[in-house]
Write a protein that binds this DNA or RNA. Structure first.
Length: 194
DNA sequence: TGCGAGATTACG
DNA sequence: GTAATCTCGCAA
């Protein structure tokens, strides 16, 4: 399998452009990961659903930094969610990785997700589940996805994004609910809501 | 310094 | 339908 690290410039574009192109890319942490099959775009100070909507804070600081880094946040007292930072430095955008299709290290994922039951499509079919399955937490906030140092990378596995990804509104938000900034691989069983 | 809400998950 | 669980960010 060919697998090349994505370039910084791949991420240095509008999140609404990058998001559908992230579908079928490989998210890997230390040999454990899979194909991205569901994403949501968040567009900084123009997007009322974004954590950055009300300006820069310690929590959302990474989103204001250079593209190609990982923004990890903790929510509901128990879950981590991870995003890829996009656009130019100073503009706070992120793409929430909502679901992946397990490909590598599936047994490791299963051990980390004892509540997943049978079926690979329960291992990482949600943003909190991904971080459990890939062991991503706040220590990975700001990790560089281009450099290999962090152990977390987004790779081009040689699978093209879908020519016609499914698109709809984002999940779990109160504001900006009308914006159609969620994309997923149509029919994939790993998508968080089917 | 206090308090409300949260880009969720799992179980009843 | 709703409990679990804790951090952040704004208001006072």
């Amino acid at each position: 399998m060919t697998a090349e690290v994505l370039s910084r410039s791949f991420f240095a574009r509008d999140p609404q452009v990058v998001a559908p192109e992230l579908l079928n890319k490989l998210l890997i942490h230390n040999g454990v990961g899979g194909l991205i099959v569901e994403v949501e775009a968040y567009d900084g100070d123009s997007d009322p659903a974004s954590h950055a909507y009300r300006g820069r804070t310690p929590r959302n600081d990474v989103m204001f930094g250079p593209p190609g880094h990982l923004y990890v946040y903790f929510t509901y007292g128990m879950h981590y969610c991870c995003n890829t930072v996009c656009a130019e430095e100073g503009r706070a955008t992120g793409i929430l990785i909502r679901a992946i299709e397990p490909v590598q290290g599936i047994e490791t994922m299963r051990a980390r997700r004892p509540k997943a039951g049978n079926g690979d499509h329960h291992l990482a079919s949600g943003p909190g589940k991904i971080c459990q399955a890939l062991a991503i937490d706040r220590t990975h906030n700001g990790a560089d996805l281009i450099s290999a140092d962090s152990g977390i990378q987004v790779l081009d596995a040689g699978v093209d994004p879908p020519a016609h990804p499914a698109q709809g509104t984002r999940i779990g938000i109160r504001a900006g609910t009308e914006l159609p900034w969620r994309w997923w691989v149509s029919g994939n069983r790993n998508v968080s809501r089917r």
